[in-house]
């Protein structure tokens, strides 16, 4: 009886330890993810003048965003995700004297994943609600979420993306610090979090010890595409930047539609190249 009892206690130990000891010898390869920006096909840099409409040139001074939940999917509707990055802060505010850095873009840290064939990449623009509930004080020094530059306490939300700059509405060649010429988008709050599944033209094949590079390129001009007549008086498919050039905090404010639209445009503005 004693023996049996002992066995009773010891047996599970064996089972547990044997589970531990039986590591699936995983065959892995590396995936690098890189993000960069363009403006209507041209390399994007801050301080560079770009054509917005035939009447208005724009110049940006800051452009950055949080990305989250980046993962690989084996097939389109797969619920199994291979995580590449949980959260990262991507700053693409390279000035015209940093053209090389702008061309190189921002590298997320390289991730080891099981080798195999993947057919889709999932990416979140902004932060999902569970992360957005936290605040900078919750994170250690150096963490992407520890910065006070991208937290808006009165909305209890991180600023998912900042797009700042100027539009030369009166065409006088000067980007003025004025109500209508400043562009001040600080996009945030749970409502505007955007997730997208991107399909590469060819499946992503991660070979043993091989390295695959996934390059995501965001067209900043496409972020301003809007079809609502209120916000596109000229009906050229682009936000009427003369009159709508800053974020709303109140999600019930009709103008919040602009914030919502810009964030959801990240989906269509982002192209995946291998």
């Amino acid at each position: 009886m004693r023996k049996l009892l002992i066995l009773f206690f010891i047996a599970p130990l064996f089972v547990v330890s044997s589970c531990d000891k039986e590591p699936e010898i995983e065959i892995v390869g590396n995936v690098e993810v890189n993000l960069k920006a363009n403006y209507d096909g041209e390399q994007f840099m801050t301080q560079q003048e770009y054509v917005y409409t035939s009447a208005i040139n724009v110049k940006f001074t800051e452009f950055n965003l949080y990305v989250s939940n980046i993962s690989l999917l084996e097939f389109e509707n797969s619920t199994e995700e291979t995580e590449l990055a949980e959260v990262d802060f991507v700053n693409l505010s390279f000035t015209t004297d940093q053209a090389t850095e702008a061309a190189a873009g921002y590298d997320l840290s390289t991730k080891k994943v099981p080798s195999g064939t993947y057919r889709a990449v999932k990416i979140g623009f902004g932060l999902p609600a569970d992360i957005n509930r936290t605040s900078p004080g919750d994170y250690g020094n150096g963490n992407a979420l520890a910065t006070s530059t991208h937290y808006w306490a009165s909305a209890n939300s991180y600023v998912f993306s900042k797009i700042e700059g100027f539009s030369d509405n009166n065409g006088n060649g000067i980007f003025e610090a004025s109500e209508d010429e400043g562009i001040r988008f600080h996009l945030g709050q749970d409502e505007v979090y955007t997730e997208r599944i991107l399909f590469p033209s060819e499946p992503i094949v991660v070979e043993e010890d091989g390295t695959v590079n996934l390059s995501l390129n965001i067209d900043v001009k496409k972020l301003f595409e809007i079809s609502d007549i209120t916000y596109d008086a000229n009906q050229d498919g682009l936000l009427d930047i003369e009159n709508y050039s800053s974020s709303r905090e109140d999600t019930d404010d009709p103008g919040f539609l602009v914030d919502r639209t810009i964030m959801s445009n990240y989906s269509s503005a982002t192209k995946l190249n291998q």
């Binding site: 610090a177 010429e181 400043g182 562009i183």
Partner: peptide, 8 residues
Amino acid sequence: SVSPLIKP
């Protein structure tokens, strides 16, 4: 170099 956040 003035910030776009500066405005009347």
